[in-house]
Design a binder for these strands. Structure first.
Length: 281
DNA sequence: CGGCTTTGACCGGCGC
DNA sequence: GCGCCGGTCAAAGCCG
C-alpha cells in the first residue's frame, strides 16, 4: 500500500488508510482484485460508523478526484457492503443477461447479492463523466426528493458486470453522485497503460479504473484541500495527482463519522448512506 | 448496420 | 395484501 498511498504526494494529506473500505468489507472476505488494484493490502476493518455494525450497507469515504474538463471536482465516496458471495454474483449476473426467467428463479432461491459498491460525488457540469471505460445506459429513473433523474449504466464489456448509477444532487446541481457497483474484469479500453508504469499515479489510475471512476483530466483541476465546497467537510478535495484518489477515499470516512454536514445533502446521500445514520449523527 | 439512448413496463423488496 | 420504490428489461428510435 505504501507505493500508492504511503509515499507520493498523497502523503501530505495523510488520511487513515485503513479506513478506505473498512467496515463494508469484512476483512478476510474482501474481494481482492479490488484492493490489489488499489495497491492497498493491509486495510483493516475498523468500524466506520459507530452506530451500525450490522448494517454494513454503505460506508461513505471521502474521495477526491480531479475534475471534469470544465469544472473542479470534489468527491466523497462510499464503499458499499460486500460479502463473500461476490463471485457467485458474477455468475448470477451472466445468467441475468441470458435468461430472465432463470434469473427469477434464482432470485427466488437466494436473495440477490450485491456487488461491492462505491459512491462518490464529483463536482461536474456533465452527468456522465469520462472515466476510461465505456458504459451503456440501460435505464433512467426519477429520484425521489430530487428533480434530477438517476441514470443506470453498465460496462459495455461483455464479461464485465460493473454497473454505475449517476445522479445529480438536488441541493447542489453542480454535484454529480456516481455509484459504482462491481469491479471491472478488464483493463480500461480508453486508457492504455504506459509501459513504464508503476508510479503512484499509474497505480492510482488503475485503482480508479478498477471502479471505473472518472479519471479524466486527472491533473487538471483540483480543489483546495479543505472545506471549500458546499458540503462543508463532507467533501474534501485535493487531487493534484492520481493518488489523491485514495486519499479522498479515506477521508470520507471521517466525514461520515463526524457527519453533520452530510445532512445537507440528505436527499441525495440517503441513497448512499442509510438514512438512520443521517439521523443519528 | 451496429452501438447506444430513451422510455414505459415489469419485477422484487419492503413498509404499512 | 397493497402500494411505493428502486432497479432492470427490452423495444423502438437515433446517430455516426
Amino acid at each position: 500500500m505504501e507505493d500508492v498511498l504511503g509515499n507520493s504526494s498523497f502523503s501530505a494529506n495523510s488520511f487513515p488508510l485503513q479506513s478506505i473500505f473498512d467496515s463494508s468489507w469484512e476483512g478476510d472476505k474482501f474481494p481482492l482484485g479490488f484492493m490489489e488494484l488499489l495497491g492497498v493490502q493491509d486495510f483493516t476493518s475498523t468500524p466506520l460508523f459507530d452506530t451500525d455494525p450490522p448494517m454494513k450497507i454503505e460506508s461513505p469515504d471521502a474521495f477526491n478526484l480531479p475534475a471534469t474538463p470544465n469544472s473542479s471536482s470534489i468527491s466523497s465516496a462510499s464503499s458499499d457492503a460486500v460479502n463473500d458471495e461476490a463471485v457467485k454474483v458474477d455468475e448470477q449476473e451472466e445468467d441475468q443477461q441470458k435468461n430472465k426467467k432463470q434469473l427469477k428463479a434464482k432470485k427466488m432461491n437466494q436473495k440477490r447479492q450485491r456487488e461491492p459498491r462505491f459512491a462518490f460525488m464529483t463536482k461536474s457540469e456533465v452527468d456522465h463523466l469520462e472515466d476510461g471505460y465505456r458504459w451503456r445506459k440501460y435505464g433512467q429513473k426519477a429520484v425521489k426528493n430530487s428533480p434530477f433523474p438517476r441514470s443506470y449504466y453498465r460496462c459495455t464489456s461483455s464479461s464485465c458486470n460493473v454497473k454505475k448509477r449517476v445522479e445529480r444532487s438536488f441541493t447542489d446541481p453542480s454535484i454529480v453522485v456516481t455509484t459504482y457497483e462491481g469491479q471491472h474484469t478488464h483493463p480500461s479500453p480508453l486508457m492504455p497503460r504506459p509501459s513504464h508504469g508503476g508510479s503512484h499515479l499509474n497505480s492510482a489510475i488503475a485503482a480508479g479504473a478498477a471502479f471505473g471512476m472518472p479519471m479524466q483530466r486527472a491533473q487538471t483541476h483540483y480543489y483546495h484541500h479543505h472545506r471549500q465546497h458546499p458540503f462543508g467537510n463532507t467533501l474534501s478535495a485535493l487531487g493534484h495527482d492520481g493518488s489523491s484518489i485514495n486519499a479522498g477515499f479515506l477521508h470520507e470516512r471521517r466525514l461520515c463519522s463526524s457527519g453533520q454536514s452530510l445532512l445537507k445533502d440528505h436527499g441525495l446521500l440517503q441513497d448512499i448512506i442509510p438514512s438512520h445514520m443521517l439521523k443519528e449523527e
